[in-house]
């Protein structure tokens, strides 16, 4: 039972990560490869604050959201001057830098040793410690995250985002401040990663930089693309499929050492199959990779 709940919590974390990426990449067309870096910034903020300052969970979460937003602006504003492939490279650079800092600034982040013993969250007297408690917290966060995404995409603001993805020049000619939209949605996407960051940190109670690598960014992108970019439910479906299917490999009696490699092969294979037969993803509409 606990195992099943654990899988559901993981799915929830990836739903939030890929949904927030979906705003930036699926709707606006800025394929950011730095999403795991923002996720890491959020996770480390919560971990360091609760370990060093002993501040309550909600305060840590709010600070993580703000700090992720600041980092989003710092990366987003200079990256706006460049487009498409160059934007991908700029975001990639931030991903690499963020990982290096987490890995090498030993006095602050403990580097590759990671941060153990992160306290479990306490929300208004509700001490979250058991698996079902965490599942409930996950569900609440997911609902909040998806509601925000829904509100944004089903609004005039979201309509402009799609227009920017399809044709920036046209959006400009309609009087839309394209640069402003790109910045704001990028910052917003970064802020949303603080939710899964905070959840992951307190749930696992231990973090190290290996959770926030380029591989993780690519995994988040894969979820969004396979599920369906530019659709609200795409990332949800993608997260369910991509988190669950590899787990099934355990049940066919595959030893752990092979299963780990099979996972990588599976993700790669799924991405190739998806690009060949359903470039728009399982339920998707936008074709973010083929611009």
């Amino acid at each position: 039972m606990d195992y099943l709940i654990h899988i559901l919590i993981l799915i929830g974390i990836y739903v939030m990560l890929s949904s927030s990426l979906n705003l930036v990449a699926g709707y606006t067309g800025m394929l950011s490869i730095a999403h795991a870096a923002f996720y890491g910034v959020g996770a480390y903020t919560v971990a360091l604050m609760s370990l060093n300052l002993h501040t309550p969970f909600l305060v840590n979460l709010v600070c993580a959201i703000i700090i992720c937003g600041i980092f989003g602006a710092v990366v987003g504003i200079p990256s706006l001057r460049i487009k498409d492939d160059y934007f991908i490279i700029a975001a990639f650079a931030f991903q690499i830098i963020a990982f290096s800092v987490m890995n090498n600034w030993v006095s602050f982040t403990k580097g590759p040793m990671g941060l153990p013993g992160i306290p479990q969250p306490n929300l208004f007297g509700w001490k979250i410690s058991s698996y079902p408690d965490f599942l409930l917290l996950t569900v609440i966060m997911c609902v909040v995250c998806l509601l925000i995404c829904w509100r944004i995409t089903h609004s005039p603001y979201g309509r402009v985002l799609q227009a920017i993805r399809e044709d920036e020049t046209f959006a400009l000619s309609l009087g839309k401040n394209v640069a402003g939209y790109k910045i704001s949605v990028f910052v917003l996407g970064a802020m949303l990663t603080a939710l899964p960051g905070a959840l992951y940190t307190t749930y696992i109670s231990y973090i190290d930089p290996s959770s926030f690598t380029v591989d993780e960014s690519i995994f988040i992108i894969s979820i969004m693309i396979i599920g369906g970019a530019g659709r609200l439910w795409g990332p949800v479906l993608g997260a369910v499929v991509l988190v669950m299917l590899p787990e099934l490999l355990r049940f066919v009696g595959m030893p752990n050492s092979i299963a780990a490699n099979m996972r990588q092969i599976f993700y790669g294979g799924a991405l190739v199959v998806c690009m060949l037969w359903r470039p728009q993803g399982l339920v998707g509409k936008a074709d973010v990779l083929r611009k």
Binding site: I152, S155, P156, Y157, R159, V160, L174
Partner: peptide, 15 residues
């Protein structure tokens, strides 16, 4: 609908 100018819903804050 995209072509209407000055829509308040196009601003995140007023949204």
């Amino acid at each position: 609908m995209l072509s209407f100018r000055n829509q308040s819903g196009e601003n995140l804050v007023s949204l």
